[in-house]
Design a protein around this nucleic acid. Structure first.
Lengths: 222, 222
DNA sequence: GGCACAATGAACCATACGGTTAATTAGGTG
DNA sequence: CACCTAATTAACCGTATGGTTCATTGTGCC
């Protein structure tokens, strides 16, 4: 009443605590989900803001513009995934067991990080222009290839792996299987049915993928 | 002349021929390129119109709205690709040779149809909602799986292929390799270098992919 | 030729959307 | 506590964009 009446043009504003880091983290988390769900052009700044504890203004205050926010989301996503890739302890396993474990792990890991997969899909739609601009992404060359190289060398020393294996190409093949499994699930199941999407389908597929990769590196028993 | 004199407030409009089918085809062609390049939300109606011989008006006249245009683009793309998939004449080849030919062909075919790959990527970003709505896409179950099934059965009869092969799962593995090769080229080469993008890299990869698939179906010589 | 209807062009519209301006508050420092 | 700056709120803005209105022209048909 009286208090209300006194609100000339400017009204009473609520009080608030400052917590910049939490606000930034909040924005990044929601932005990641929104970009993963709708892509760069499909995501809406207003929608990101709404799902945040803060306002649209703060998004541009901290992240300059939409594209820059997207880039930071990408960088964080790559950072997170790479962090989670470590410590498989493959050194104590024989080469075949190590490879099996690595492939199975990658299969599950991709499944469990669908948002990351989707961000990479989106980035490929944009022809990788944003990852190309990010030094931090280009620099942190995923350690998986190094692990593979080590496994391959041990297998070759033991004479059970072929001599013409390119670790990068091997990594490519593993990635192709594990990535495609998540990235193309939607269209594949619409066209060919849900057979491979079910739990048993995925189990069968994982076993097949692991076997296929292992067979591709073993020396052909003459 | 008399016709010229009649131009009150409305000015002389250029004359034109009617050719609805050509106009529609023109729009579809450009729209396909634009959607493949920028995605559903990223593509601009005005930009599609500009690259067309017709106007933005006609896009909505013939295709109702953007989403419907996108759906028709998708349908046409699937139709085209399936048409191009036929006639490999694998019946006369022994199972291994037939499989090798099919895989190598798929590898090249995906490479040569990048726009289609990109449309499928985009559709997966949208969780396949548009292909799901299209009867014509769901219906025309790609004949490749049938071809594979036939090859597999022949191989099994000859005792050179394993007995536990699921043709659909085999198709999945071939697709994974050939699709990923195109879909993830951008990010993969940014992060791991261009080694696999060069002509020699692609040749080596294709050979590896073919071998890997073939080895996965052969009976393990005990 | 003239009628009905499909096809087309030009201009227009409502609004969604990325981004900004301006005022206000919190919190640290001397 | 006074003062400065970073953080935050509320309101606003210009324009890009999907879509439409309306008048006009082509075309087959009787």
């Amino acid at each position: 009443m009286t208090a209300d009446a006194k609100t000339k043009t400017t009204r009473q504003r609520g009080s608030w605590k400052q917590d910049p880091e939490a606000v930034k983290a909040d924005i990044l988390r929601v932005a990641r989900e929104e970009f993963a769900a709708h892509g760069l052009s499909g995501a809406r700044a207003q929608e990101i803001a709404s799902r945040t504890k803060t306002s649209k203004r703060m998004i541009f205050y901290y992240f300059k513009d939409k594209e820059n926010l997207y880039r930071e989301v990408l960088e964080q996503a790559y950072r997170d995934v790479r962090t989670g890739e470590k410590a498989l302890e493959l050194e104590n396993l024989d080469p075949v067991a190590a490879l099996r474990k690595l492939v199975a792990y990658t299969f599950d890991h991709h499944r469990a990080n669908e948002d990351f997969i989707r961000l990479v899909m989106i980035e490929n739609i944009h022809r990788g222009s944003h990852v190309a601009e990010s030094d931090t992404i280009r620099a942190g060359n995923s350690p998986v290839v190094e692990q593979l190289k080590e496994i391959v060398e041990r297998g070759q020393q033991q004479g059970i792996f072929r001599d013409d294996i390119d670790p990068l190409q091997l990594h490519w093949k593993i990635s192709a299987f594990c990535f495609f499994n998540v990235s193309n699930e939607a269209t594949f199941s619409v066209i060919f049915g849900n057979e491979m999407t079910t739990q048993t389908g995925q189990d069968s597929l994982k076993a097949d993928v692991v076997d296929t990769i292992v067979k591709s590196v073993l020396t052909t028993s003459t």
